[in-house]
């Protein structure tokens, strides 16, 4: 259950009033390239800031406990379970959500999709779609981690880490994507979609 900070009886948002009794903070999150200034309850996670305060509902809440990966977004370029991040601790962070993925590869003119998004559609890499935004952000992260030479459990280490870029074999993809649960069981097609863009 949540912690219980002393109730904020002060006059309003921000760090005004008695600092020991303040329960809100003002933070700026750079979301998909746009700075968003928010006054948030100190208990608010990045995930809830996105979904409830910015109406960016692409990142999903599957468990709120860091156990499913549905909330995966890129924070300063790294994939992260946003349900575990207090927003107050991420002032100034650069956050990319599924809504901003297409722009990572260029201006999303005419509604162009990120190649992974297109591959997921073509491969039927989802059914209900609820895990999908997390899978996509996670795949973007996994691909860059492999490119940067970060090993996984199934990588045979010759040097490093980090070592040379790790080729993404199906085994590597399965291992690196295992933090993102899909109850619809779309895994074979998810792996296929990631192979399509990394081959």
């Amino acid at each position: 259950m949540a912690t219980h900070p002393a109730p904020d009886r002060s006059t309003g948002p921000g760090r005004s009033g008695d600092p020991d009794r303040t329960t809100t903070s003002t933070v700026t999150l750079r979301v998909n390239g746009v700075p968003r200034r928010l006054t948030l309850d100190n208990r608010t996670t990045v995930l809830d800031a996105l979904r409830e305060h910015l109406d960016l509902t692409g990142a999903k809440k599957g468990c709120d406990h860091g156990q499913c990966g549905a909330c995966t977004v890129l924070v300063d370029g790294r994939r992260t379970n946003s349900c575990l991040l207090p927003a107050v601790a991420h002032d100034g962070a650069e956050i990319t959500t599924v809504e901003g993925l297409a722009e990572l590869v260029g201006p999303a003119e005419g509604g162009a999709l990120h190649p992974l998004q297109q591959a997921f559609v073509d491969r039927d890499g989802f059914q209900c779609g609820y895990c999908t935004p997390g899978q996509l952000c996670s795949a973007v992260g996994a691909i860059s981690e492999a490119a940067a030479g970060h090993p996984s459990y199934v990588t045979s280490l010759t040097a490093g880490p980090p070592g040379p870029p790790v080729p993404l074999s199906p085994d590597e993809i399965r291992e690196r994507m295992s933090g993102n649960l899909c109850r619809c069981g779309a895994y074979p097609n998810i792996v296929g979609a990631i192979e399509d863009v990394t081959r």
């Binding site: 979904r51 509902t57 993925l101 509604g111 998004q117 559609v121 935004p133």
Partner: peptide, 17 residues
């Protein structure tokens, strides 16, 4: 392909919450 595929991969599909 799924007719709502684009909505699902861009985060535009809205669920109950």
């Amino acid at each position: 392909v799924r007719v709502e595929g684009r909505e699902k991969v861009t985060g535009a599909a809205r669920y109950a919450a």
